[in-house]
């Protein structure tokens, strides 16, 4: 089991490795990143951030619907990877897209609604990332920790909204992501089945 965790850990780095591969492959405009590598990097990282967020909230439904309880052990890692890709996405925005033009960045955060929404997601993710370790769970206590981590139910749809708003017009891709997210959140409304263990409080026990 130790091994599978290592395998998942490395697999989560594949999107990043692919980026390095593209950057070093000849292509239109110089490299495999295309004619506008700044835009490509930022969007690619944003998309993977969202994919990891979705994977993180897919784990409980997978257990509920298919009984794949073994996945739960990877949830923390997936969640932290989501944060990792969000940070890379924002870093690419600050460093490559805006080249540290702080006044412009500040204006963007205030004026560009989709960026405001993205910023809210980032800020909300920070406490979740900081508390994603055993020591913090112990310190907060299970209930408080679980309540805090319910924030993810707001963050993921908001991140998708950020995506939807960023695209011009109404586009298919963000809607597909949105539908998947809606479905995953809906599964949580299904009452827990008996054979999966009793839950006297009647609340969902985990995210």
């Amino acid at each position: 089991m130790k091994h599978t965790k290592a395998v998942v850990f490395v697999a989560c780095l594949v999107p990043l490795a692919w980026l390095f591969w593209l950057a070093n492959t000849p292509g239109v405009g110089g490299s495999g990143l295309g004619a506008n590598p700044q835009e490509f990097l930022n969007r690619y990282l944003g998309q993977w951030a969202l994919k990891f967020l979705i994977m993180a909230i897919a784990i409980t439904p997978a257990r509920k619907l298919f009984g794949w309880s073994g996945l739960t052990r990877y949830r923390r890692m997936i969640g932290l990877y989501a944060f990792f890709y969000v940070v890379l996405h924002v870093t690419s925005y600050v460093v490559i897209d805006q080249t540290f033009n702080w006044p412009e960045i500040w204006q963007d955060i205030l004026k560009r609604n989709f960026i405001t929404v993205g910023m809210v997601c980032l800020l909300a993710l920070i406490p979740l990332a900081i508390t994603s370790n055993n020591a913090m769970i112990r310190r907060l206590g299970g209930r408080a920790w679980r309540n805090l981590h319910k924030l993810i139910y707001a963050i993921v749809p908001l991140a998708c909204l950020h995506f939807f708003m960023m695209r011009k017009g109404i586009q298919m891709e963000p809607l597909v992501y949105g539908a998947i997210i809606a479905a995953l959140l809906m599964v949580r409304l299904i009452p827990r089945r008996k054979q999966q263990g009793s839950n006297p409080s009647g609340r969902p026990r985990s995210l």
Partner: peptide, 22 residues
């Protein structure tokens, strides 16, 4: 005139280096 989605004050010239400012 600031656009709700992109600041129009600056632009990226396609073909500029990865770290070239707009």
């Amino acid at each position: 005139r600031s656009h709700p989605r992109w600041s129009q004050a600056r632009e990226r010239r396609v073909g500029d280096g990865l770290f070239t400012a707009k």
